[in-house]
C-alpha cells in the first residue's frame, strides 16, 4: 500500500522506560499490514510554535490491529504528544522508511541491541523475527533501573531478554556490549539506540564479521525524501535517512 495521511485514535496510554507508550487505533482504512519493522511514522503535534511533524519509530503493530508508538517527552512537540489523553486523535503520515531486513533468518540467531527510546523498533522486529522462525536475543541498556522499567513486557515472550545498566541498579552492571549474550555467535545483529552505542555495536560486528544493521535518527523535516535535510554520509554519497534508511547496513556508513 502507498504512503498516506491517516488519523488514529489513542485507545491506551502507558509508560515504559520513562517514555510515553501510546496504543493507537487506525480510523478510516484500518489495515496496518503494510507496515514493516524499522519503519517510522511522522506525527503531527498541534502545539504552539511547533511546525514540523516528529518522526517516531513504529514500536509495534499488534495482532489485533493496533499501532504502538513510544515517545520520549523531551521538547515542545513530544511533551504535547505525551499530554494527549485516551480518546484524542493523532494525525500520522505513514508508513515511512525502509525497515529492517528480516530475510532468511529462519532457524538462525539474531541479536537485537537497544538503548533508550531506541528499543521501540526492536519490539516489532522481535515479533517479526520470532514469527519467521529465528531465535532472538535482545540486549538492552540504560543508565539505571528506571530506563528499563516495563520494557520486558513489550516483547514477545519467545525473545530472550538481557538487561544492563550503567549504575547496576538493574540487570548487569555495565554497558550492553559487556553482556555475555552480546558476545555469542549470531547470524545478524540489529541495533537502535544512542549513537555511541550503535558505533560500539557496529565496531564489534565488524570485528566478528557479522552482518549488522543500525537504525539512524538524523534530524528530519519532511520524512519523504524531498527536503534533503536528514542526509547521512555513506559510501554512495549523501543520502536521505528518511527514504533510504532509517535502517542501514553498517557497510554503507562511513563510521570507521
Amino acid at each position: 500500500m502507498s504512503k498516506r495521511i491517516q488519523d488514529f485514535k489513542i485507545v491506551n496510554k502507558a509508560s515504559a522506560g520513562g517514555n510515553c507508550l501510546l496504543t493507537l487505533l487506525p480510523l478510516g482504512t484500518p489495515d496496518l499490514h503494510d507496515i514493516t519493522p524499522g519503519q517510522f511514522v511522522q506525527v503531527q503535534a498541534l502545539a504552539p510554535e511547533v511546525l514540523l511533524r516528529r518522526p517516531i519509530s513504529v514500536c509495534d503493530v499488534t495482532p489485533d490491529g493496533h499501532l504502538i508508538l513510544m515517545v520520549k517527552p523531551i521538547g515542545n512537540a513530544t511533551r504535547h504528544i505525551d499530554s494527549l489523553a485516551v480518546g484524542d486523535t493523532l494525525n500520522l503520515v505513514l508508513p515511512l522508511g525502509n525497515g529492517f531486513d528480516t530475510s532468511d533468518m529462519q532457524g538462525r540467531r539474531a541479536l537485537l541491541v537497544g538503548g533508550g527510546v531506541g528499543v521501540a523498533p526492536l519490539v516489532f522486529l522481535a515479533r517479526a523475527l520470532t514469527a519467521a522462525g529465528a531465535s532472538v536475543d535482545i540486549c538492552i541498556g540504560g543508565r539505571s533501573a528506571a530506563d528499563i522499567a516495563g520494557i520486558d513486557s513489550l516483547f514477545v515472550p519467545d525473545a530472550h531478554l538481557h538487561f544492563a545498566t550503567d549504575d547496576g541498579s538493574a540487570g548487569h552492571h555495565g554497558l550492553v556490549t559487556s553482556l555475555n549474550a552480546f558476545s555469542a555467535d549470531y547470524h545478524r545483529i540489529y541495533c537502535c539506540g544512542p549513537t555511541p552505542m550503535m558505533k560500539a555495536v557496529a565496531a564489534s560486528a565488524r570485528n566478528r564479521g557479522t552482518d549488522c544493521f543500525v537504525s539512524l535518527e538524523n534530524m528530519m523535516a519532511c520524512g519523504l525524501g524531498a527536503c534533503l535535510c536528514c542526509i547521512e554520509k555513506t559510501v554512495r554519497g549523501n543520502i536521505c535517512v528518511c527514504t533510504e534508511g532509517p535502517v542501514f547496513n553498517i557497510n554503507q556508513l562511513l563510521w570507521n
Binding site: E49, M219, L228, C229, I231, E232, K233
Partner: peptide
Amino acid sequence: REGNDAPRMVETPSGMINAV
C-alpha cells in the same frame, strides 16, 4: 553537488532554518 554537511536543519518558532 553533494550539498552541505549535517546537520542541515533546525526547527524554530513556526519556522525552520535549512542549509541543504
